[in-house]
């Protein structure tokens, strides 16, 4: 006979946080799902406006939504890849090269942009890369003919990388710091070159941090709309902008909710695939380290 599991008294401590999670995450998601079948809007004190499948059929038929979703995923992918490429050396340097007493200073430098508003960061970057801005003026002054790339896709990618790189560095740093120096020395002494040491020791052992970094960079970048709107120019619209406009400009919560749900599902599927692929790669390259 199967024994009933007893609730440990200590687990009761988790109740408040579980309650918060339920209230702030599960309930809004459930409401989002419910609103997807709602005819336009519902406000406090007013009756339910009625059920409809119209939001879903409209979304399926909307070429605009799918085009924007692809554009956003592409931008998310580019930004994430650049962040990974830039963050690995930086995180490695912080964890393994910089003396321990200087790491705190490095950490402050990485998180310095968090001390100010994101909007200010965007405007600072705009000032830097616009025609007549600091960067363009400096380049022209030293004889390099440079044309501003503000209001292009490249500007969107640059600003998003600038904003989200610290998240990736911090995630990778926490993983890489945990890799024992002896392990790396052993690998090098036993004949593995640096590339092999990276692929068979560092990468598999830093994979959990990498996954967290991807989650913290890829997901918000795909849903971003402020940065592309400000610096992306005529092609600056992303799927987040379309969802935002349904709430902000059109007051059609039902349609906005269905677009949000689909975006959420697509992101969950992509993250599941990335997680699976990373674990597989981790196992096949480095074994169960």
């Amino acid at each position: 006979m199967k024994k009933k599991k007893k609730i440990q008294p200590n687990s009761l401590w988790a109740l408040p946080s579980a309650g918060l999670l339920l209230l702030l995450t599960i309930a809004p998601l459930a409401m989002l799902l419910l609103f997807s079948f709602m005819n336009r809007n519902m406000f406090a004190g007013q009756p339910w406006p009625g059920w409809t499948m119209g939001n879903i059929t409209r979304m399926m038929a909307s070429g605009t939504f799918w085009d924007l979703l692809l554009r956003s995923l592409r931008t998310g992918l580019i930004v994430t890849v650049i962040c990974i490429a830039a963050a690995y050396p930086a995180a490695w340097a912080m964890a393994k090269v910089v003396p321990e007493k200087r790491r705190g200073m490095c950490m402050i430098l990485v998180i310095l942009p968090f001390f100010t508003s994101q909007l200010l960061l965007i405007y600072a970057m705009m000032n830097l890369i616009q025609t007549g801005g600091l960067l363009m003026t400096a380049l022209n002054a030293i004889g390099i003919p440079a044309k501003s790339f503000l209001y292009t896709n490249a500007a969107t990618v640059l600003v998003l990388v600038y904003e989200y790189l610290p998240y990736m560095i911090l995630c990778l740093y926490s993983s890489i710091e945990g890799i024992g120096d002896n392990l790396i020395h052993a690998s090098l002494i036993l004949g593995a070159n640096k590339v092999r040491t990276f692929t068979h020791i560092v990468f598999p052992m830093s994979a959990p941090g990498l996954l967290s970094g991807i989650l913290l960079v890829f997901v918000p970048v795909v849903g971003s709309f402020v940065e592309p709107g400000l610096v992306g120019g005529s092609n600056g619209m992303m799927v987040g902008s379309l969802i935002n406009s349904q709430y902000k400009d059109n007051l059609n919560m039902g349609y906005g909710a269905v677009l949000s749900c689909v975006l959420l599902i697509v992101l969950c599927v992509i993250m599941a695939i990335i997680s699976f692929a990373t674990k597989k790669a981790q196992q096949s390259i480095g074994g169960d380290v």
């Binding site: 070429g63 605009t64 092609n235 059109n250």
Partner: peptide
């Protein structure tokens, strides 16, 4: 409003 928004979003979303 929906019809106007659709046309306008299509315009903003299209590649320039």
């Amino acid at each position: 409003k929906d019809a106007w928004m659709d046309v306008w979003s299509e315009f903003q979303a299209s590649a320039g």
